[in-house]
Each structure stands twice: as structure tokens, then as C-alpha cells.
Design a protein around this nucleic acid. Structure first.
Lengths: 225, 225
DNA sequence: CTTTGACTTTTTAAACAAAATAGTCAGATA
DNA sequence: TATCTGACTATTTTGTTTAAAAAGTCAAAG
């Protein structure tokens, strides 16, 4: 009976308290996100985040074992949103070429977010925390996976012609990232101005169009032959 | 008569001594090139170059006012070779698409040379001497200029379709450079292994093929319409 | 379970000294 | 007169020490 009672009590407790810490974690996450977005990883201290939400620094460490894992959580949040949004939007489309275009657009908004969150100078890139690089690799693999699927869909539907979808996806992913880097090299500040952003998205779309048309040309050439 | 004599003497002297310093300059240049190719700008001292050719450091400064101008001379040498080679090889071709392919290949050899000569870590890029950046800009403008011409040739000959050749040339140039950077980011060492080099040239060619085919597709679409 | 103040450890920043290298120049040499 | 050099100065880089800041820990309390 005593045990039963205890058990009941425990259930009740979890029912009440479980949402509590989750809310707290989100609360911390939100504060961290704000600081990170404003000042970047290096220029944000745990003390500041703690102060922002009137909490002691030690409490922060109760929820997150270290600074990295807190910031990782923030960024993984963004990434998850990206993945979901991407899946959703692509599901609404039917043609492979428009899917790729959509991917490029959505991926670009994620890029902008990350640019803020990490806020490293290109020159300080080598200092970048390893987890940021891990994260980039992660995003790249999500991106190339979806791209591979879409490319194959285009091949089956008969608008594209190529040999290896995975290889092509990697090439395209690098091509886009390379263009982003080139554009960033021309920036003087850490932030992108609206003009710079507009130019980047324009370049990305132009390159994508050429890429897509290149694949279509292969197909056309085949059918002509 | 005395004046005449003096004049004659001067002529003679220049006739004899002018080739001398030119040979000397080339001698120095060669030594500098060797050191630069082996160790890069930062890790090469003027003393070392002087020692290599059994000359005092001060003498080096007699021929070149500073370290920058010596290294600039070395690099401009390579660049000139590139331009000449490029013009020559392109003149031998008739089709715009093969010209672009040739340009990519020759440009790649220049890239490799520069990789050796500058030998900066990507992470140290911000330290790079301004003249290296100037030089890159210079090469880019040579490249885009030729590309613009070739693209227009392709448009006139009727295999390409596009709006603005110059804009397209810049896009393509960035696209290639972006891919080079992406590949370099994956290198652990400063030098490229043969495998890495092979992969890079493969990627560059694939991207170029897609680019070219993209332009051809535009044309095909037009003629079909 | 959660929170915290007070604590230790690690990292970053500043200041300074020492070493290395770029760059100069008066005078020698041919 | 053009070229070269040893001996110099100026500048940059590197290393070292110390102080400050921030990360991270923990016993104790609510």
C-alpha cells in the first residue's frame, strides 16, 4: 500500500514537474539564442545568459553540462526547423527542378541564421568550435540526401540525365557553399547587408538554374540521339 | 669632342652592362621562386635567398626595394606565363565550349603553382599580404575577360544562350574558385596530394560541363520554341 | 529535484622583453 | 658610375609573465 501510494505520487509528480523543466530548458534556450544571435559564441558568456533570465550561472550548468552543449542545442533547434520546413515544402511540389530551387531558397535562410549565430569572422574560422563544423557536416548530409532523392526523382520522371546522383548532389552542395564563401569574402563586416544578401541569393539561383538546365540538356541530347 | 666621347662611353656601358643586371635579376628571381615554392612567403627570408646565391642581403635590396616587390615579381612572372599560354591554346581552338574547358585546365595549373608559392593556411588567409589579393583580383579579371569573349563567341556561333556575358563570366569564375576553396578546406596539409588534385580537377571539369550544358539547354529550348 | 554562493581551473588579454627579420646607408670595389 | 657589402636601425614576430575574465565544480540549502 505504501509502495502503491509512492508510485501514484511519483506519477503525479512527473505529470506536473516534467513539463516544468522542459519549459525551463526552452526558457534558457531562448535566452541563449538571443545572446548568440546578437553577439555570437565567443562574445556571449554563461553569466550573461544567467543574468538575462535572473538565474545563477550554476543553475545553467544544472541543465547543460557545458557551454558547448547549450549552444549546440540552440543550433540543433534551428537545424530541426530547417529539416521540417524543407520536407514540408518539397512534399507540396511535384517537379524535381522546382524542388531543387525550393531547397536552395530554404537552405539560404538557414545559412543566414547560422551566419548570425556563429558570427565568426572568416579570418577566425580556424578558431571555430569543432561542433560548428560537425553541424555543418550534418546539414550537408541532410542536404545531399534530399538532393540525391530529388535528383533521382528527376531522372525517373525523365527530365534529368546523369550517372551518379550522390556524387552530383555533393558537387552541387559544394558549389553552393563555395559561392556563399566567395560572396562572404567580399563582405567587410560580419553582418550581411540587404544588398549583399540579395546579390547572394541571386547568384545562388542563377547557378542553380544553370545546374538544372545542364542536367536537362544531357537528357535532351540523349533523346535527340 | 669631350662631350661626344662621354656620350659614346655611356652608350657602350649601357650596351654591356644592361644585359648584366637583367641576367642578375633573373638569377635572383629564380632563387626567390625556388624558396617561395618550397616554403611560401612567410617562411622565406631575404637572408636565405641572398645566401642561396652567395650574395649579401643588401645587394638584394639593390635590385628590389623590398620583400614584397621581389615576390610580386616572381608571381607576376607565373601569371604572365599563364596569360600567354591561355591565349595561345585558345587561339588553336574553334568551339566556345572546348575553349572554356581548356581555360579551366590551364587555370588549374596556375592555381597549383600559386598554392605552392603563397603556401598560406586557409586559416591564415587574413594575414595574406595585400599584393596577393591584388594578384588574385588581377587573375580573375584576366579570366573573366577571356571568358566573356568566349561566351559571346558561343552566343554568336549559336550554341549558347544567355543575357549578360560579363555577369555570367563572374558567376562562373566564382563558382570555380568556390569549388577550389571547398576542396582545400578538406585538406589537412598545406600541400595537395595527387589524389586531392585529381579529385579537384575532376570536380572542376564536371561543374564546367554542367555550366556549358546549361547554356546550351537555354539555346535548345529557344530553338524548339 | 532544483538552486545557489563560494570555490577552483582554464582560457583569454595585456604588458613587456627577447629574438628574428626587414630594411638603410656610408663607404669599398671594380 | 654601377654594383656590392658590413654594420647599422627599425619593425615584426615570438615568448614569457602576470592579471583578469570566464568556464566549470560542489557542498549545502530550500
Amino acid at each position: 500500500m505504501l509502495i502503491e501510494d509512492n508510485y501514484q505520487q511519483q506519477i503525479d509528480k512527473t505529470a506536473v514537474t516534467t513539463p516544468e523543466p522542459e519549459r525551463k530548458v526552452d526558457f534558457i534556450l531562448k535566452a541563449a539564442q538571443k545572446r548568440l544571435g546578437l553577439y555570437g559564441y565567443e562574445k556571449t558568456t554563461m553569466q550573461e545568459i544567467a543574468d538575462d533570465i535572473c538565474m545563477s550561472k550554476a543553475s545553467l550548468y544544472y541543465y547543460y553540462p557545458d557551454k558547448d552543449s547549450l549552444f549546440r542545442a540552440v543550433i540543433e533547434n534551428e537545424q530541426k526547423e530547417f529539416s521540417l520546413e524543407l520536407e514540408k515544402r518539397i512534399a507540396e511540389l511535384t517537379e524535381a527542378d522546382t524542388m531543387i530551387m525550393e531547397l536552395v531558397d530554404i537552405r539560404h535562410t538557414l545559412f543566414r541564421k547560422f551566419l548570425n549565430l556563429s558570427k565568426f569572422r572568416l579570418s577566425d574560422e580556424y578558431k571555430a568550435k569543432p561542433f560548428l563544423n560537425e553541424l555543418y557536416i550534418n546539414i550537408r548530409s541532410i542536404e545531399t540526401e534530399i538532393l540525391t532523392t530529388v535528383l533521382n526523382k528527376g531522372k525517373i520522371s525523365g527530365i534529368f540525365q546523369f550517372d551518379d546522383a550522390t556524387e552530383l548532389a555533393h558537387l552541387f552542395s559544394d558549389l553552393l557553399q563555395g559561392l556563399r564563401i566567395m560572396e562572404m569574402k567580399r563582405m567587410t563586416r560580419l553582418e550581411m547587408t540587404e544588398t549583399e544578401n540579395d546579390h547572394l541569393i541571386k547568384v545562388l539561383r542563377e547557378a542553380t538554374t544553370l545546374f538544372i538546365n545542364g542536367l536537362k540538356y544531357n537528357k535532351l541530347q540523349l533523346t535527340i540521339k
